[in-house]
C-alpha cells in the first residue's frame, strides 16, 4: 500500500529510539533463597537470559506463580510479579492477560502446585490457550514443606507422607497436556542441559498461545540422587530435533548421541514420545501456531470509556434494585 513499505518512517524511528538495552543484572532482584545446587537457579538464569536477549521491558513483563519453592521465582525477577495462592497461578495469569494483552506474562508453577491442587486450572488453561509461557518446575517432590510426595514423584519415592515408598505410578504432565483440546505447545527441558533449556525457553516465548514447558529439575536437598541415572548417562536423554524445532549444536551432539528427528506438528508421534519410560525426551514435542488464543477470540475493539463502564455497571446493579412503583414505570 505504501510506496516505501520496506523502510521505516521517521516517526517510527523516533518511537523506537526509546528502546533500551538491558543486561542480565537488570532483571535480577534479590539473592535467591533456593538451596545451593537447586535446579531453579538454572531456570532463573535461562529466563533472565531470554529477557535480556529479547529486551523485554521490565514494566511490561509479569511473572505469576503459585506456592512452592519454584513459586518464589517472581521475587527474583525485577519485573512485575504476582506470588499467588496455591494452585491458582494460571487463573491469575489469565486474568492479567485478559485485562492487559500488551503485557508479556510468564507462569512459574511447581509439580505440586500445577498437577495436584491446581490440576483443574491447568487443564482448562491449556484449553483456553491464552498467550502465556508456563514453566512447570518439576522436581518430583514438595520441597518447601520438606519432602512430601507429589503427583510426579516416581513410584517407590520415600517421603514424609509415603514413608514406605509411594504406591502409585507418577503422573506424566506431558501426556496429560497433550491430551487436552486446543493444546498448542508442549516441550520438555532438563535443568542440567542449560543450552537446550535456553533454546526451549526461547521457543516457548516466541510461540503465540499457551506454551507449556515441563522442566525436569534436581532437588539436591530432598531427592539428591533421583535423577543421577539420567544425568550420568547422556544416552538416557533423547534430544528431539527438527528443522521446525530445535537445532542441536556440535558440542551438544558430541555429548548427547541419542537423538531423534521429530516434527513438532505431529501430535500422535508427540504423544508416543511423551509416553516413553526409559529415556527422557528433551525438546519440543508439539507446536501448532494455528490454534486460536482465547483473548483473541474474545477481543473487543470497543474502547472502555468511563461512560461505557458506568452504563455497564448501572445495568448490572439495576438488576438488584428494588424500584418504587412509579420509578419502575418510568424506567420501563
Amino acid at each position: 500500500m505504501n510506496m516505501m513499505s520496506d523502510t521505516m518512517s521517521a516517526t517510527a524511528c523516533l518511537l523506537q529510539m526509546a528502546d533500551e538495552h538491558f543486561e542480565l543484572e537488570d532483571y535480577q532482584s534479590g539473592v535467591p533463597r533456593w538451596c545451593t545446587g537447586c535446579g531453579d537457579n538454572a531456570i532463573l538464569a535461562a529466563v533472565q537470559r531470554l529477557c535480556r536477549d529479547e529486551a523485554l521491558r521490565p514494566e511490561k513483563t509479569v511473572f505469576v506463580s503459585g506456592i512452592g519453592c519454584s513459586s518464589r521465582f517472581p521475587h527474583y525477577m525485577k519485573t512485575y510479579g504476582f506470588h499467588g495462592i496455591h494452585g491458582r497461578a494460571l487463573p491469575v495469569a489469565e486474568g492479567v492477560k485478559m485485562a492487559r494483552p500488551d503485557l508479556t506474562v510468564f507462569v512459574n508453577t511447581g509439580d505440586g502446585d500445577c498437577t495436584s491442587i491446581g490440576a483443574a486450572h491447568w487443564i482448562h488453561a491449556i484449553r483456553y490457550n491464552m498467550n502465556l509461557t508456563v514453566f512447570l518446575h518439576d522436581n518430583q517432590i514438595y520441597g518447601l514443606t520438606k519432602k512430601q510426595a507429589s503427583p510426579t514423584s516416581p513410584i517407590g519415592t520415600r517421603s514424609n507422607t509415603t514413608p514406605r515408598g509411594s504406591y502409585l505410578e507418577a503422573l506424566n504432565p506431558l501426556t496429560v497436556t497433550l491430551g487436552v483440546q486446543n493444546v498448542s505447545f508442549v516441550a520438555q527441558a532438563a535443568d542440567w542441559i542449560p543450552e537446550v533449556l535456553f533454546d526451549i525457553v526461547k521457543a516457548a516465548y516466541h510461540h503465540k498461545g499457551l506454551s507449556f514447558v515441563r522442566i525436569i529439575q534436581r532437588c539436591p536437598e530432598w531427592l539428591p540422587k533421583a535423577l543421577d541415572p539420567w544425568m550420568h548417562d547422556p544416552n538416557k536423554v533423547q534430544l528431539l530435533h527438527h528443522d521446525d524445532g530445535l537445532q542441536l549444536s556440535t558440542g551438544l551432539s558430541r555429548v548427547y548421541k541419542n537423538q531423534l528427528e521429530h516434527d513438532p506438528m505431529n501430535i500422535d508421534r508427540a504423544r508416543e514420545i511423551a509416553s516413553g519410560h526409559e529415556t527422557i525426551p528433551v525438546g519440543i514435542l508439539y507446536r501448532n501456531p494455528a490454534v486460536p488464543c482465547y483473548e483473541d477470540l474474545r477481543y473487543s475493539d470497543k474502547l472502555r470509556t468511563p461512560d461505557l463502564t458506568r452504563a455497564g455497571l448501572n445495568a448490572e446493579l439495576d438488576k438488584y434494585t428494588v424500584w418504587p412503583q412509579e420509578a419502575k414505570e418510568k424506567v420501563a
Partner: peptide
C-alpha cells in the same frame, strides 16, 4: 546449570559470565 555450588565454595575463584 548455574546451581551456585562452586560460587558458594569460593566466589572469588569461581565467577559467572554474562549468561550467568
Amino acid at each position: 546449570s548455574t546451581c551456585n555450588e562452586c560460587t558458594t565454595i569460593n566466589s572469588k575463584m569461581f565467577g559467572y559470565d554474562g549468561n550467568k
